[in-house]
Design a protein around this nucleic acid. Structure first.
Lengths: 108, 108
DNA sequence: TGATTATTTCGCCGTTATGCGAAATAGAAC
DNA sequence: GTTCTATTTCGCATAACGGCGAAATAATCA
């Protein structure tokens, strides 16, 4: 059952990633990070929720492996750790509009 | 604000899709459907949860636009409505293993 | 028609998520 | 060392999720 368990484990991790992306505020954060790294202050401004709330959303994304953070001076900068999320998001949006698009996704 | 609202709307829909995928049982269902359509009975057997529970998971996936259903005789068959989900899943799994893969995803 | 089979809907209940403000932490500047 | 400033952690209330079994639907078969 080793291989079945590893499949299960991989799937659980994958589910965690999807779940982290499954919230409008977190997705808005991800959309910003697709365009480049940002400090928390920028994200708070844009998302329009309290600092503590945004901070926890970021910790969820980080725990799921979607983003990485780096402290520089007083600020903490976040960046996307899974670039393919941007590609897939574009995919989903295109599908919802009824468009048929072929994309090349680089899974890093 | 029309364009900003439509972006918001699109993102909310996208979040709903991600959220639907963010559960191990639903992801297991999706993994089965990647390999072809299945009736509910097959899915119940494989997932190992009650009929009512699996049924609700399926309705979540359907509401999010991830799967489609078709009734044939007594049985209801489900199939994947977003093939790119399979591609992206492979992407995420590869990334978790540390592999770097380039895939061509067709967003239907 | 009445029985059977496949699936969905409903109501319940314990667990988890999400928002907030207050307090804690950590680094920079004075 | 004290004081800012940026961010995280904590505790709490409310809302949403996820499981189950029982009951409702719907299509087939006798």
């Amino acid at each position: 059952m080793a291989s079945s368990n590893s499949i299960t484990h991989l799937r659980r991790k994958r589910a965690e990633t999807f779940k982290a992306l499954g919230h409008p505020a977190r997705l808005q954060i991800v959309d910003m990070l697709v365009r480049g790294e940002h400090c928390v202050c920028d994200l708070v401004d844009e998302v329009g929720l309290g600092w503590s709330t945004v901070s926890r959303h970021l910790s969820v994304l980080k725990a799921a492996g979607v983003v990485e953070d780096e402290k520089r001076g007083l600020q903490v900068f976040y960046r996307l750790a899974l670039p393919c999320v941007g590609t897939f998001s574009a995919c989903l949006d295109a599908a919802r509009r009824g468009e048929k698009v072929e994309v090349r996704a680089c899974c890093a």
